[in-house]
Design a protein around this nucleic acid. Structure first.
Length: 594
RNA sequence: GCACCGUUGGUCCAGUGGUAGGACAUUAGCUUCCCAAGCUAAUAGCCCGGGUUCGAUUCCCGGACGGUGCACCA
């Protein structure tokens, strides 16, 4: 299939199109039309069902605008901010800060203003690494991939549109852990928009400036928590490990989740677990598994804190695109926010048995130390405390000596209040580790459409259709009167359509043009079932019956109108059309598909 | 951001220094008992700004958007 065909279909049938066309268009922004929005929402619902509901996790919704300090902590402020200088001669772009750092003593050139870096390039006669042309006079461009904004009027505080949804979960961890009643493991999900001011957005939905992410942050105790790996142990996966990517004749490793984890191909059992869950989910929503793989990040590709990282990739138009990332992020995120923020980004981990520890402690009598040592009294007390911990035996004598401010101070042991205390510790504060499956929703939509796109022939006439799963299809069904010159057919079709809608099904009604044309319209947007009211359905042997046509095969069955809603709901939930073919009268249509 | 190419009804294309034509789609009517049928009619377009010109959709410049390559993609 040519990529152009899908783009044309997407525009014509209302899946997605470039935004703000009336104002010339805006690069990097796409609007999902009626069909696309419905499909995307169904996909999100399927994700929510699998990664939130079925995992027993909880979903939150955080703001898209966050204040600057959040991104100082997360590293995005620095990591997303690049200083580029372009060579006027050969056109290569280079990191200006790196060039300056290479030839000067300056270690953090990125923190300098752009014009100062321009000056440094001129003063140090820095030349283009690619072609050797002096870069003096070239302007240093500041690229921050985050959209900046102001929060509030006047002396507003700087804020940014979030470049990933994850931070909205991390920053609220101190509160979210309360809702989990302090127990690990627990998972928080979020589906929402993220923003990156891409230099050069391209490729339709593949690289946008505003896009939708579905993310799960699984918080675990790295020493105690194990994933329920047995649930996915036998799931078959196609892996593309780093070692194979680096080999000259690298090959896929076809294995199971269990084996891959056992053999250490997948480093973290948690990552392995979610790869298995994701594989089954992708199959459920209609990704073609022949055009799907898990690719491990190469060492250089990986963030320094990530122990192991895998991407889910799908093949679209011959290119492999990243549609999800699975990373073991250790305690990086929560530790960073713990350092920068005020809350407690830890949980209290209770020991199996409370530990009784003997500790040497002092309880100095300050009413004696104060008059005796004056301003040094507090320092003496502190020194006594340190000594008790370091060398309890020092308190065996009648007096004990400590050095404070270069002077030796003698204190009566009685005054120091030395004692061996037994204390009970019932646990410790630990920073949870994070396992993060992060899905790109728009890219998954693109994948589903590309993988569902089909061309075949029905009765010798070419047709285009989308073989999307009923759960994901924008519309559950369409209802037609076979012909419109008989009010009885139109009336029954009207009634059937409104009954189905009342039952919660998304139903299109169409009485325009020939029946074949109407089938083709629905085929093109992936409607899985078409309900047609014909004359046999209102008179003769089978009153109040309708026919249901399955999209891919064009096979039809006749069933009572009042059983329709329940059957369509079952089909949407995953029941095979073959069940209906067995249960009801098959309609002979002489229609051939191939 | 750089370079090259492009932008004409909803979609896909043709064409022109004197404001445009087709196909498909859409709408209405006729016809029509199962897969883009037929007939009649209708709706609908030269990306934006500036320049040259009596006159620009057409030529020139700039911009926006799109495609491709480079760069970028924590």
């Amino acid at each position: 299939m040519a990529a152009d065909d899908l783009v044309e279909l997407a525009k014509r049938r209302g899946f997605f199109f470039g935004s703000n066309g009336a104002y010339g268009g805006t690069a990097g922004f796409y609007t999902f039309g009626p069909q696309g929005a419905a499909l995307k929402r169904n996909l999100e619902d399927a994700w929510r069902d699998r990664f939130t509901i079925r995992e027993g996790n909880r979903e939150i919704e955080a703001p898209t605008v966050m204040p600057e300090p959040v991104f100082e902590a997360s590293g995005h402020l620095e990591g997303f901010d690049d200083m580029l200088v372009e060579c006027g001669e050969c056109g290569e772009s280079h990191r200006a800060d790196h060039l300056v750092e290479a030839v000067t003593e300056i270690e953090d050139a990125e923190a300098l203003p752009g014009d100062e870096v321009e000056g440094l390039i001129a003063d140090n006669e820095i030349a283009c690494p690619s072609c050797g042309t002096p870069l003096a006079g070239e302007s240093v461009e500041d690229f921050n991939l985050m959209f900046a904004t102001d929060i509030g009027p006047g002396d507003a505080q700087p804020g940014y549109l979030r470049p990933e949804t994850a931070q909205g979960i991390f920053v609220e961890f101190p509160r979210l852990k309360e809702y989990a009643r302090g127990n690990l493991p627990f998972g928080i999900t979020q589906i929402g928009a993220a923003y990156r001011n891409e230099i050069s957005p391209r490729g339709g939905l593949l690289r946008l400036r505003e896009f939708t992410q579905a993310e799960l942050e699984q918080f675990i105790d790295p020493e105690a928590d194990e994933p329920p790996l047995d649930r996915v142990r036998d799931v078959e996966v196609r892996l593309y490990p780093a070692t194979e990517q680096e080999a000259d004749d690298g090959e896929y490793v076809e294995t199971t989740v269990g084996e891959a984890v056992d053999e250490g191909v997948i480093g973290s059992p948690w990552v392995g677990y979610y790869l298995g869950v994701a594989k089954e989910w992708y199959e459920r929503v209609g990704v073609d598994l022949d055009r799907f793989r898990f690719r491990q990040h190469l060492a250089g590709e990986r963030a320094h804190y990530a122990a192991d990282c895998w991407d889910a990739e799908s093949e679209v138009d011959g290119d492999w695109i990243e549609i999800a990332g699975f990373s073991y992020r250790s305690d990086y995120d929560l530790s960073k926010h713990g350092e920068h923020g005020d809350g407690a980004f830890t949980v209290f981990k209770r020991y199996d048995e409370p530990k009784t520890v003997e500790r040497a402690a002092v309880d100095p009598d300050m009413s004696v130390l104060g008059p005796e040592f004056g301003g040094d009294a507090a320092a003496v007390a502190e020194a006594l405390e340190a000594l008790a911990e370091r060398d309890p035996d020092a308190f065996d004598a009648e007096t004990v000596s400590v050095d404070v401010n270069g002077e030796t101070r003698d204190v009566d042991v009685d005054v120091a209040g030395f004692a061996i205390e037994e204390t009970t510790e019932s646990g410790e504060h630990i920073t949870p580790h994070v396992v993060e499956p992060s899905f790109g929703v728009g890219r998954t939509v693109q994948t589903l459409l590309a993988h569902a796109y089909r061309e075949d022939e029905v009765d010798g006439e070419a047709r285009t259709y989308l073989s999307v799963e009923p759960e994901i299809a924008p519309q559950d069904a369409a209802v037609f009167p076979l012909v419109t010159n008989d009010d009885r057919l139109v009336d029954l079709a009207d009634r059937v359509a409104s009954d189905l809608r009342a039952a919660g099904l998304a139903v299109a009604y169409d009485d325009s043009g020939s029946i074949g044309r109407r089938y083709r319209r629905q085929d093109e947007v992936g409607t899985p079932f078409c309900v047609t009211v014909d004359r046999d359905g209102i008179e003769g042997d089978a009153p109040d019956t309708v026919t249901v046509r399955e999209r891919d095969s064009a096979a039809q069955v006749r069933l009572p109108a009042d059983e329709l809603a329940a059957e369509l709901a079952a089909l949407r939930a995953g029941e095979s059309f073959d069940v209906l073919l067995d249960r009801y009268e098959t309609v002979e249509t002489d229609v051939e598909t191939n």
